[in-house]
């Protein structure tokens, strides 16, 4: 099988990532997860004012 970058990798069962894609999955989730974590952190900081303010 051929990956989008043109390199070969062994076939994997559908829905399960091939070995070369695990890094991509981690990168993609970090890409969206880090900004979201920042947003949630700021939200929690503000929400605590309900109990301390």
């Amino acid at each position: 099988m051929t990956t989008p970058s043109g390199t070969s990798s062994p076939p994997s069962p559908p829905g399960r990532p091939g070995p070369s894609r695990r890094g991509l999955i981690v990168f993609a989730w970090l890409w969206v997860g880090l900004p979201l974590a920042y947003g949630i952190y700021e939200l929690v900081r503000k929400a605590t004012q309900l109990f301390t303010g």
Binding site: M1, T2, P4, P14, R16, P17, R21, W31, L36
Partner: peptide
């Protein structure tokens, strides 16, 4: 999707747009 493409790559793709 090429064979072996993980479906767990699709939610971050969607999130990058929705976020």
């Amino acid at each position: 999707a090429p064979t072996g493409w993980s479906r767990w790559l699709v939610p971050p793709a969607a999130l990058s747009v929705h976020l």
